[in-house]
């Protein structure tokens, strides 16, 4: 060991896992623990979160010794548009109905790529919606309202 240097990836990883382990442990303490012979709902999770915390610490310690490759670029734009897509679908599928919810879900996801032109995005989303409605709604008769109460007059 030459100097104090960290592998940031592993340091972050160890730190996060330790934190998650501690979170689960804290939650487990709110549950009845019981005994080894008559385990309560909190017993097994507490043991597991202990193990996770321990492993997190080990990774953290090891990060001071070894070096890996850097983390590389982060897909900020991707996260901004990909992750909200299923959330939007969940929020609107019952209100707007299957058709508009799916259309906008696809449209939102389209913008995750800077190579997607707006016109193309609309066309793709439309095609996708038509296909899905034909297959799922008419073909397989999934019991979802095509247009929900928010858009029904």
């Amino acid at each position: 060991m030459k100097s104090i240097s960290f592998d940031t990836t592993n340091a972050l990883c160890g730190g996060l896992l330790t934190a998650v382990g501690l979170f689960f442990a804290w939650q487990s303490f709110g549950l009845e623990l019981g005994t080894a012979f008559r385990m309560g709902p909190g017993y097994f999770p507490l043991v597991l979160s202990g193990v996770l915390t321990l492993l997190g610490v080990v990774i953290l310690v090891q990060s001071a010794r070894v070096h890996g490759e850097p983390m590389g670029p982060i897909a900020i734009r991707g996260m901004l548009f990909i992750l909200p897509a299923p959330i939007f679908f969940g929020l609107t599928v019952r209100g707007l109905g299957f058709v508009p919810a799916l259309f906008f879900t696809a449209l939102i996801a389209c913008f995750a790529s800077h190579r997607m032109r707006p016109l193309w995005a609309v066309a793709l989303s439309l095609a996708l919606t038509v296909f899905s409605v034909l297959v799922f709604s008419y073909g397989l008769q999934l019991p979802y309202q095509r247009f929900g109460p928010w858009v029904r007059f």
Binding site: P86, G90, A112, M116, A121, S125, S132
Partner: peptide
């Protein structure tokens, strides 16, 4: 960039 909006839409329907 065409594939992944398709993936997102179908996954949403599938999971739901």
């Amino acid at each position: 960039f065409i594939l992944f909006p398709i993936i997102m839409a179908f996954s949403s329907v599938g999971v739901y």
